[in-house]
Design a protein around this nucleic acid. Structure first.
Lengths: 163, 163
DNA sequence: TACAATTTGACTGTGCACAATTTAATTGTG
DNA sequence: CACAATTAAATTGTGCACAGTCAAATTGTA
């Protein structure tokens, strides 16, 4: 047989994967009435909060949205177009820098916030965990993600050491 | 402002999502040489273990594979076709039940196991967590997934209670 | 045997995620 | 001003995930 700890990390990876999909399933159900998917909901959350540049009155760019949610343009561009088609956001080229696309809520997009208010409570209930467990889980996953991102930066090095 | 615990669960959901993607990125790097994606690697792991019906000498069906990995045929069918195209597995209709498709390793698929042996250790190292933390995380995520799956079964009920 | 119900897997369409490339606009430098 | 380098989005292609639908095969029952 093999080292138990090696088996263990596979299982952890699997449970992270499974939990992510289970969470996606719950959000799918809770957001169906709002016509949103989970990633779309995340984008709307950021916009409802005022966006990454909430300090300024300026609406956030695609790049800023992507940075705060860790999504790239290949994911965000079509997603934002769908939100625009649904009448929830507007996309306008920047005045100063024509490369930038600023994303702002429409009246309909802002109005949706009220209907989305009950979503977190329902998700919280579905998790079956209490506040302390969620906090602990959040910290553990945060450390995990930070470590993984760090490991991913050391790309070229750490070549396959034989044996 | 709002209840802090409501904010918290959104963050947990986000960290699960983020951790899942970070993990996917690490696996992408570690499995590139083997020509596998993470879900494909999971399928190969199950097959290397002998499959869900390891007790019998019988190779597992697509349905059995899906049950053990929580993947449905819409995901598994094309995935297995890619593994077959890569020469790693063979798919044969069952003799007794022509509806079933049995999946078995080819010689190449079995041989790949040796090259994949070092993968778990590298992933384990990349997580930056020790065995105890991984165990704890695994249990917490397991409870979370179980609760979410349970909540997902109570679909029709729990209608939107207003107020 | 004939037929309805169930089971199984494939197929289609939508959407997320990421890598790689492309295009357009800006900035820096001579 | 001209031109190279950089930056921002969009686009393309591959693959995962799931809902919904479909066809084929089996099973149960009359």
């Amino acid at each position: 047989m093999e080292d138990e700890s090696l088996r263990l990390d596979n299982q952890v990876c699997f449970t992270v994967h499974a939990a992510s999909r289970a969470l996606d399933g719950i959000y799918r159900r809770e957001l169906r009435d709002l016509g949103l998917t989970y990633p779309q909901y995340l984008v709307m959350l950021v916009l409802w909060e005022g966006g990454p540049g909430a300090a300024d009155g300026r609406p956030p760019t695609v790049k800023e949205l992507g940075a705060s949610l860790r999504l790239d343009s290949g994911t965000l561009s079509p997603l934002l177009k769908r939100l625009e088609a649904a009448g929830l956001v507007r996309r306008d080229r920047g005045v100063h820098d024509q490369r930038s696309v600023h994303v702002r809520l429409t009246a309909g997009g802002s109005a949706l916030r009220r209907r989305a208010r009950q979503v977190p409570a329902r998700i919280f209930a579905a998790t079956g965990l209490d506040e302390g467990e969620l906090t602990h889980l959040r910290h553990a996953l945060g450390r995990l993600t930070t470590a993984l991102d760090g490991a991913l930066l050391d790309t070229a090095a750490s070549g396959a050491a034989p044996e």
